[in-house]
Amino acid sequence: MNARAGTPIDALVVYRRRQSHPELRTFFWQTRRVDVSRTNLVHTEREGETTYLVYAVSSGKDHFDLRFDTRRGRWTLEKVDFDLRLDMRRGRWTLEKVDVGD
């Protein structure tokens, strides 16, 4: 699996009238479409004059950290948290938990 912090991605968002940040609905990472089932936390970071919105979201049991550069309007994937388990009987890997990023 390849995922480095800062991987550019495409994202679908909704801008709601009374919300201070866009709501992330879906993003596309490698060949995967990831539908966001829950936004756990959004916070702001600043680097000089650039403001970033950092999203911690879940898609089912998988969790992702994404960053939105408000100056350039770009989304990047920062952290991925899957579960990975080896089924010894069938000799098969099932995606359960892997930490990528940081």
Binding site: N40, A56, H63, D81
Partner: peptide, 9 residues
Amino acid sequence: SVEQQAQPS
């Protein structure tokens, strides 16, 4: 608690 809110695991 902020970390637990951000990371469900």
